[in-house]
Amino acid sequence: MKRLLAALAAAALVPAALAQGAADFPTKPVTIVTPFAAGSGPDAVLRLVSDKLGKLWNQRVTIDNKPGGGGFIAIEAARRAAPDGYTLIQFDSEHIAALPHLYKSKNFVTLQHFDPVASLFRTPFFVAVSSQSKWNSMKDLIAEAKAKPGQITYGSWGVGSPGHLGGQQLDALAGLQMNHAPYREVSQLYANVGTGDVPWAFASIPSSQGIYKAGKLKYIAVAATKRVPQMPDVPTMAESGGPAGLEVNSFVSLLAPKGVPEAVKKKINADVAKAIADPEIRARFDTFAFEPLAWSPEEITRQAEIKSKIYGDLVKRGNISLD
């Protein structure tokens, strides 16, 4: 009986201990692994957020850039870490939702290995064409693509990227047949769109603003249901004559190796929300046309599942594989 009472007493202390552990978190430095290269838009935002978190937590927050390998270099660096919240990984929605469909031979489902913890931002994508292009709307682009099946090419920053899958979705919704040209270098992609060597591409503000500000690009639509405040003169996809249901965007979140205590996840989620509410970070988001997000882990999962369904259908339709 004494042993039973002792065991019950110990069990009763566990929730309190976990809550105390979450309240104290972190008691040592935190590492955030990212598959994005140093200097990229997601990396720049992550460094601002990590600086705010470091001050809030009174602990060092280190960014570990591990680009390449379709995200798997970063994944391997983070997946075997202890599930205690001290190792996080930055993913975009494609690492979460598209990667399992693109690398079927790896049998890797992101959310079977990582738990969503906190959201950071969502970025919209614009349809970019040369400033000299005769296309001034999606209606123009679609009309020519229909008149010349298999002859219009669009570029993207890689097979399976939002720019590629967005083009596949446009094909499906508008009944088109266009060619895809993947690029290794994002700067080269938009340089070629600017010269007209590639007729069009989806583009985010940070990836294309240099060519845009040089007057070599124009945006004929944003693939969204609402106009973007930073580019109020650019019409939505529907306003420009494109499919009303076509939305192309990517959201970026922080995840952790599966098994992080709920109390720790909630604390990180709340503290990240505080960080991205900071005026300095909001100002940087505005520069990039990033939409701040403060989703719960459950909402991140729900949004990822929606994208996974869309991406799975597109990958199957286009017979796309990175195996």
Rank of each mutant, 00 (worst) to 15 (best):
K216E: 14
V315R: 02
S308P: 02
R302C: 10
L53S: 02
L165W: 14
A128Q: 03
T110Q: 07
V252N: 15
F125D: 09
A263L: 11
G150A: 03
Q188T: 08
I211M: 13
A270T: 04
G160A: 15
A97C: 06
A294F: 04
K309C: 07
L46T: 07
S240K: 01
Y219D: 11
V252K: 14
A16T: 04
F290Y: 15
D197P: 00
S296Q: 05
P261E: 14
A16E: 08
P149V: 10
L170M: 03
H95T: 05
L46V: 06
W200A: 05
S321I: 08
H180E: 13
E144Y: 03
A224E: 15
L4V: 09
H113A: 06
V33L: 01
L255F: 14
A38I: 07
L173R: 00
S208I: 04
F25S: 05
D313Q: 14
F288A: 10
P182S: 09
N192Q: 11
G158E: 15
S240T: 06
I73K: 09
T153F: 15
S105E: 11
I75D: 14
A44I: 07
E239V: 06
H113V: 02
R282T: 13
P182Q: 07
S119N: 00
K148T: 12
F202C: 04
Y183E: 11
V117T: 05
L293D: 14
I310H: 14
R60E: 15
L322C: 02
A16D: 06
K218C: 03
A270D: 12
K267M: 03
K66T: 07
P116K: 03
I220Y: 05
A174Q: 05
P29A: 00
S308N: 08
S240F: 11
N136M: 01
F125H: 12
S250T: 13
A270E: 13
T301Q: 13
S93W: 10
Q177V: 02
V264Y: 08
A201E: 08
D64A: 10
F114P: 01
N179Y: 06
P279F: 11
L5K: 10
K52P: 01
R184I: 07
L314T: 08
A38M: 05
G160L: 12
K226W: 15
P149E: 15
D43Q: 04
D313Y: 06
N179E: 12
G167C: 02
K265R: 12
I96K: 00
T287R: 14
P292Y: 13
P292I: 13
Y86W: 02
E262G: 06
I320P: 09
L189D: 12
L189S: 08
L88I: 05
A244I: 07
A275K: 02
G210F: 06
K266E: 13
F285T: 13
K106L: 07
Q20C: 02
N107K: 04
I142H: 01
G318I: 08
W295F: 09
K266N: 14
T110P: 01
K139P: 02
A304R: 01
E291N: 12
Y183S: 00
A97S: 14
I142M: 05
I281P: 00
K307M: 14
M178P: 00
W157F: 15
D286N: 15
H113K: 03
Y190M: 10
T153L: 13
K104P: 00
I152P: 01
F36I: 03
K226M: 15
L13D: 11
A23F: 08
G241C: 10
A17K: 01
D323G: 00
I211H: 10
D43T: 03
K258H: 11
S321A: 12
